[in-house]
């Protein structure tokens, strides 16, 4: 408690209101930056999506016309579908990460080094991952092509040249670092699994899958939540891989909303800022569903903590 007034009648205004004022002063720079560069732009984008604008000249208000055009745009439809594929298939990183972490959760010599090496793909940039995978898939010399060849399969045009296979190929590349991330989350989670509960369950005859499902996975819930958050965000942010591996091709079949928006807004054939902003708004609305869920979960937890 701050000392009361009558002790020191001449204390400054700041001194008297210190506890109330300090947090405001401390928050000011961070909140200012964040508002200018993150919060306000979100609203600006909503606004821009109602205009026809080449980024240089005068913007022309056209209401919801950009959104109407989106409904008829086949490329937009393809991107939206691909986003859905990304969202669903990217989640595979969670079980895959869990299984690798179970495989590695042992105490043998050198295991620490093995764990770090398994984590490796997450540390390198997606640009390098994309490059590496485009060689991996290369139709003339890629190891993947050679392996398929061994079992008598051939993908026409190579994985990245084939309109049907291409998105799956890129998602597989993205799963590589993402699985590594989920693995590290679960390794940390497994570390804190209550050994007494495991022993008790063992005495009750639980083992293998049953033990995993009923005893271990419930205890890994915080790790799973974070894995879910980062995987969803990662799936909707996929841009780098597409950009380096295919530039949206072949025939625009590997585009997702994030890439399509970039392409439209900063196109070589004249910027279409309004249309790009409309695509971004759609992407944002999809994300908003998840953001609301994340915040709601965190709110429940915050309430529980007080």
């Amino acid at each position: 408690m701050p000392a009361s007034k009558y002790e020191q009648p001449k204390r400054s205004w700041y001194k008297r209101n210190e506890i109330a004022v300090t947090p405001i002063l401390f928050l000011l720079p961070g909140v200012f930056f964040f508002a200018v560069y993150v919060i306000y732009p979100v609203f600006q984008s909503f606004n821009i999506s109602l205009y026809k604008w080449d980024g240089l000249g005068e913007a022309e208000f056209i209401g919801l016309k950009n959104y109407q055009k989106l409904l008829e745009d086949r490329a937009f439809e393809t991107s939206l579908w691909n986003n859905l594929k990304w969202l669903v298939l990217y989640l595979l990183a969670i079980p895959m990460g869990l299984f690798i972490s179970l495989f590695l959760n042992q105490k043998v010599t050198g295991i620490r080094l093995y764990k770090s090496l398994f984590f490796f793909p997450f540390v390198i940039s997606q640009i390098v991952v994309g490059l590496v995978f485009s060689w991996f898939y290369d139709p003339t010399f890629g190891i993947f092509t050679k392996m398929l060849g061994l079992i008598g399969l051939e993908i026409k045009g190579g994985v990245l040249g084939n309109p049907t296979a291409v998105t799956y190929g890129i998602i597989a590349a993205g799963l590589w670092p993402q699985t590594a991330y989920c693995m590290i989350l679960y390794l940390t989670g497994l570390n804190s699994v209550d050994p007494e509960q495991v022993e008790a369950a063992r005495l009750d005859g639980a083992k293998g899958w049953k033990m995993l499902w009923y005893v271990i996975i419930p205890q890994l819930k915080p790790a799973t939540f974070i894995a879910f958050v980062v995987t969803i965000v990662g799936a909707l942010r996929s841009f780098d891989l597409i950009s380096i591996m295919t530039r949206g091709g072949p025939f625009g079949q590997s585009r997702v909303l994030s890439y399509y928006m970039f392409e439209k807004a900063l196109s070589e054939y004249g910027f279409r800022m309004g249309y790009g902003a409309a695509i971004a708004v759609v992407l944002f609305m999809i994300m908003l569903v998840f953001i609301a869920y994340f915040l709601w979960s965190m709110y429940q937890e915050e309430k529980g903590a007080h």
Binding site: P41, G55, F290
Partner: peptide, 16 residues
């Protein structure tokens, strides 16, 4: 606000 902003897709910030 900080958490929500952190999850926003980059594209919605790009033009502004």
């Amino acid at each position: 606000m900080f958490i929500a902003g952190n999850f926003v897709p980059f594209q919605i910030l790009m033009i502004p």
